[in-house]
Design a protein around this nucleic acid. Sequence first.
DNA 1: AACAATACGGAACACGGTTCCGCTTTGGCA
DNA 2: TGCCAAAGCGGAACCGTGTTCCGTATTGTT
Lengths: 196, 196
Amino acid sequence: MNDSGHSTGSAAGSKRKDALRNQQTLLDAAASVFVTSGVEAPVRDIAAEAGVGTGTIYRHFPTRADLIIAVYRHQVEACAEAGPDLLTTCPTPHAALERWVDLFVDFLVTKHGLAAVLRTDSSGFETLHAYFLDRLLPVCAQLLDAAAASGEIRPGIDAYQLMRGIGNLCIGAESDPRYDARRLVALLVAGLRRPS
Amino acid sequence: MNDSGHSTGSAAGSKRKDALRNQQTLLDAAASVFVTSGVEAPVRDIAAEAGVGTGTIYRHFPTRADLIIAVYRHQVEACAEAGPDLLTTCPTPHAALERWVDLFVDFLVTKHGLAAVLRTDSSGFETLHAYFLDRLLPVCAQLLDAAAASGEIRPGIDAYQLMRGIGNLCIGAESDPRYDARRLVALLVAGLRRPS
DNA sequence: AACAATACGGAACACGGTTCCGCTTTGGCA
DNA sequence: TGCCAAAGCGGAACCGTGTTCCGTATTGTT
C-alpha cells in the first residue's frame, strides 16, 4: 500500500512516477497507432508516437506481444466475462454460443491484424497466443459443453479447434471488402448444429 | 530461332546453358528446402542449398514468391485440372466440390506454411496470391455454380470467399496436432448444403 | 583468340525486433 | 537544500530478413 491507491488496471507495482506515466503514455500511443496502422505497426512508430525511445517500450513490455496484450486486455476480459452472462440470458445454449462467437469475431475483425497474430507459428507472439487461449478457451469450452449437453450440436469439434478456426477465418478480414469473415464463421457455427 | 529448341518445361527462353542449369538447380534446391524448413525458409538457405549466390535467385525469380510459384506450379495446375474431371466423375456436383476441396486442402496442408502465404496482406506475396486466384478461382466457381444449379447448396457464398476461407482455415494446420483443418473445412463445406 | 553479352557471387542496403550502455531523472536522506 | 545511488531513459548497435548492385567470371560468337 505505498501508492495513492489508483492503479492503471494492470499489475503496476513499479515505483517511480515517471515510469508509470510513461507506461500509460505508451499504452495510449500504442492503442492509437494500432487503430491507424494496425497491430503489426513497427515498434519504432509506437515509440515515436509516444515520444519515447524504443528501449523504454522494452523495459515496460518485454516484447511487442506483451504490449499488444496490455492494450487489448480490457476487451479480452470483457469478452471472457460475457460468456457466462450470455448463457443465462439467451434462450438456448447454441444461441449463446452464436452470440459469443459474434462478440469474438467483432473483436478480432475490428482490430486490424490481430487475428493474424493468433496463429501458433508467427514467432514472437507465443505470449499473445497463450494469453488468448488461457483467457478465452475455458469460456468457449463452457458454451460448447452447454450446447452439447442440451443436444443442440454434434460432437467432434472441441473448443480449441473452434477458436483456432474462428481466428483463422478472421485473418485479413478487415483489409478485403470481398471477404466477409462474419458470414463464414456463422456458416461454421451453423455447421455445428445437429442435422436432425 | 537461335536456340536448339529444348525447353525445361517452363517459359525458359533464356539463352545460356549455365543459366538454365542453375534455374533447375534452384527449383530442386527450393523444393528440398521447402520440404524440410517450410515455405518461409530464408532465401539465403535456398541459395546455400543450391550452391549459388543470392543474386542468382533474384535474376531467375524476381521475388521469393515467384520462386514458390515456380516450385508448386505443377501441383496447382493439377489441382485446377482436376476440377472439371471431378464434375463428370462424381455422382453429384456437391460431391465433386467436396472432393476438390479435399484436394486443395491436402495441397495446402502438405506444404509447410503455404497457406499462411495466401492471405491478402503479408506483403511481397501479392504475386503468389494473384496466381492462386487466377488459376483456381474459376475452377472453384465452376464447381460451386454446378452445385448451385443442381439445387444442392444455398447461395450467399461466392467462390472467392470460399477459397479464402479454406485457405485461412489451413493456416498453421501442419504445425499443430490439436488442430485439424480438414475437419473444419469439411464442416464449412457441409454448411453450404441446403438445409432441406 | 578475342570480345561483347550474359550470368554469377556476395557485399551492401532497407527494415523490423530486440539488446545494451552511457546519460538523466527521481526521490530518499542528511 | 544538496547529495547520491538507484531507477529509468534514449537511441545507437546488433541480428536476421528480403532485395539490389556491381565488379568479376563464364559463355559463345566471330
